[in-house]
């Protein structure tokens, strides 16, 4: 299976295994001899720290301003001002826009590069997506507006960007994943790849001895999976991610 897109976002609720799966997908692309960067935009520190490429927010902003105003001194002065820093702190959407700007610029400069993003959890992912749209409206016109438009277009381009939504096999988690799917569809016109992670139920676990709560849990899981199986693109059993056999995931 080849992956033609350039930019891959992994999102979903916190703790569903976004980091593990996005890292694994990044390794998978590497194995297919792609030139890939792995980027963490979720604020959680992670065990995968050393495989991440880190972008420093302030540096991204400085580089951008430098390019536009053609002066590093001015760009440094602006980004070091407490005024600018506190705007970045107060308006997280603005930080996302700065990161997105950096990402699209890198992809422009190197046509062979792919970037896998361990994206923020559900709600914050939507903030990220909306940041391009919102700031487009805020800026109104001018160079920054044009650049923001460009970012917004790329986020909607199915040949450029692909989204993965990671979920867990119980009703509330799935319901939220579907809401996220619809929000992504509304905002980008794209259907994300839906992944259900950590599936416990297997036909070999049944019978008399299973404690009540666990039995109910497994039953609920089976019922849910049979209802949603047509909407799920990839099901990942519990044992794959819990015994570090993630390399066996059949990406598609």
């Amino acid at each position: 299976m080849s992956f033609e897109q350039r930019l891959f976002f992994f999102t979903g609720k916190g703790g569903v295994g976004k980091s593990t799966l996005s890292l694994e997908f990044y390794r998978h692309l590497k194995k297919l001899s792609h030139e890939v960067l792995f980027l963490n935009l979720s604020p959680l520190k992670s065990e995968h720290e050393k495989e991440y490429s880190n972008f420093v927010l302030e540096d991204c902003a400085r580089d951008y301003i430098e390019k536009k105003l053609k002066s590093r001194v001015v760009a440094t002065w602006i980004t070091k001002s407490s005024f600018f820093k506190s705007i970045l702190n107060m308006v997280p959407g603005f930080s996302y826009l700065v990161y997105l700007g950096k990402i699209t610029e890198m992809l422009d400069e190197n046509p062979k590069l792919k970037i896998v993003v361990d994206a923020p959890a559900s709600g914050h992912m939507l903030t990220l997506l909306e940041s391009a749209e919102n700031f487009k409206n805020i800026f109104g016109e001018g160079i920054v507006y044009d650049d923001t438009m460009k970012i917004a277009r790329k986020l909607c381009d199915k040949d450029f960007t692909r989204y993965f939504v990671v979920s867990l096999p119980f009703e509330i988690a799935w319901k939220e994943a579907v809401e996220l799917k619809n929000e992504l569809l509304n905002r980008t016109g794209q259907l994300p790849t839906m992944i259900v992670n950590q599936i416990l139920a297997s036909s070999a676990i049944d019978g008399e001895g299973v404690p009540l709560t666990i039995k109910k849990k497994l039953d609920l899981e089976r019922k849910l999976l049979s209802e949603i199986k047509d909407e799920v693109d990839l099901m990942i059993p519990h044992y794959l991610t819990n015994s570090h056999q993630e390399e066996n995931i059949a990406w598609k």
């Binding site: 105003l69 001015v74 602006i78 800026f139 109104g140 016109e141 001018g142 507006y145």
Partner: peptide, 20 residues
């Protein structure tokens, strides 16, 4: 002294933006 920031902003954004 925020003048400079606004001046630079005006070069790269729409004129309404600086007002807003």
């Amino acid at each position: 002294g925020i003048k400079k920031i606004l001046f630079y902003l005006e070069q790269v954004t729409g004129k309404d933006f600086v007002h807003d």
